[in-house]
Amino acid sequence: MSKWFADTFPNVVYQGWTGDTGWLTAIGQTFYMTFGSALFGGILGLIFGMGLIITSSNGISPNRTVFWILDKVVSTFRAVPFIILLAAIAPLTKLIVGTQIGSTAALVPLSLGVFPFYARQIQVALAEVDSGIVEAAQAIGSSFWDIVFGVYLREGRSEIIRVSTVTLISLIGLTAMAGAIGAGGLGTMALSYGYQRYANDTTWLATLLVLVFVLIVQVVGDILAKKFSHK
């Protein structure tokens, strides 16, 4: 069996399990980049998305200036193609994490690349929260933070999980491009060790692993979204 495998997929075997170019290393790097940037980009996106809802003209604290600034920042970052963002913010990356290559360096552009997307998703998700419920909370005498946490984030929870799933999946896509700054991961495996070396078996396995990862995220996301919905 293992001999058959080694004969049929020689390049897959050649990469090995561990080491700088091993499969486990690549999987680990992809996980690290996806969840690491999901954390930072997620927090940033949540704050911006929430801010857009709160300060919009029919929000609980309308503020034209703040809304305009948030809106423009989100739009600007969304307009920059990710592969260019990677290069363009290299000095900033170096400033923040001390290096501009590798998985950790990739966290900076990945976070900045994903947050505007997530902010818009959050904005849409929270816009779904019935304004009547917000008004009822105001009539009850709820404070600003009661409404942010107790109404928006709580009522929008299921929808937030749904858009987070979408965002996480698109983030997995972005990590593949981070290979351009030597971040490693399954993207690098598929492109640098597979495609560029005519090692199709390596490319295919890397693709398959990415697919499995996406599938797991999707299924878990769907289950959680359903669990938290009582509509």
Partner: peptide, 9 residues
């Protein structure tokens, strides 16, 4: 209110 405006969750 007309549409009750209860917290659904």
């Amino acid at each position: 209110f007309q549409h009750f405006n209860l917290l659904n969750e």
